[in-house]
């Protein structure tokens, strides 16, 4: 029992709080100096923002028919990129999960490589692959595939590590080999997670593939780059609106599929 108190409990750790605050302030100020933050310039150029927004509020609807083709290409790129990445991620995750009795050394090396892949943003991957394969959707698909692979395999192997070991032991004691254990003991427990992560990766890839074209990796981004360099914000607005509609539609569909799955 707490004895009768007439005052509110005292907060502890004031010193710690203030040192943290001071450190944060030092970091902020140093960063601001390094990056030449100049809010005055921002306020000076508010007129420019007004101009851009004004242009964007009057979209050039005739541009819709031109960008529909590249839009479809963007969706195709996202589908293929996600599919290739997810396809690779499936056996990979089954191998590297710590409870799957694979070779310890090999699987930790593979996990390390996967973590490295995951640190590189998609757009950087795409920039590298455009340099390798030339301008076009192929570079974008490869970049999306690698990104989806990293993401799906990380999420998927972590859910494999949390499965119930009971069915595996039951199969083992009845003499099943490793493939049979996978097929009847592991996969039925995690397959719905897998589809969930694939859909999640697909949603992210749709968003990402919209800008991949900006650096020459195919899809609607090429037109975005064109409209921006021509300072046609009315067209930029059309492209952003179309991307927004597609993203909302895809999110809706994938949520429906997800409800069916889980």
């Amino acid at each position: 029992m707490i004895p009768n108190q007439t005052t509110l409990p005292k907060k502890t750790g004031k010193v710690k709080f203030f040192t943290t605050l001071a450190m944060l302030l030092i970091i902020i100020i140093t960063s601001a100096v390094i990056t030449d933050v100049d809010f005055w310039q921002l306020f000076m150029n508010v007129g420019q923002a007004g101009y851009i927004l004004d242009q964007m509020s009057r979209p050039d609807w005739s541009y819709v028919s031109i960008v529909l083709g590249p839009l479809v290409e963007t969706i195709r790129m996202a589908i293929l990129g996600t599919a290739f990445g997810a396809l690779l991620a499936f056996p990979f995750s089954l191998y590297v999960a710590r409870n799957m009795e694979s070779n310890k050394a090999i699987s930790s090396v593979l996990r390390f490589l996967m973590n490295i892949i995951r640190t590189i943003p998609e757009l950087l991957l795409a920039a590298v692959f455009v340099a390798v394969f030339g301008i076009g959707p192929f570079a974008g698909i490869i970049a999306l595939a690698i990104f989806s692979f990293g993401m799906v395999s990380k999420l998927f192997f972590e859910s494999i590590e949390t499965i119930d070991e009971g069915p595996i032991e039951a199969l083992k004691s009845s003499g099943a080999n490793r493939l049979e254990i996978m097929r009847y003991g592991v996969i039925p427990q995690v397959i719905s997670y897998y589809w969930n992560y694939v859909l999640f990766a697909f949603e992210i890839n749709i968003r990402a593939s919209a800008v991949l074209g900006y650096i020459g990796a195919g899809g609607i981004g090429i037109f975005l780059q064109r409209a921006l360099s021509q300072v046609r914000y009315d067209r930029v607005a059309v492209i952003i609106l179309i991307i927004f509609v597609v993203v909302l539609a895809i999110d809706y569909v994938s949520n429906k599929v997800r409800e069916k799955l889980l």
Partner: peptide, 26 residues
Amino acid sequence: AIRTFPDIILALMFIKMVGPGSFAGI
């Protein structure tokens, strides 16, 4: 809606406002 707006596009717009450089990125 803000989530859909690609960061790269935002960066390009802020470059138009404050010129190229780190501040536009921030």
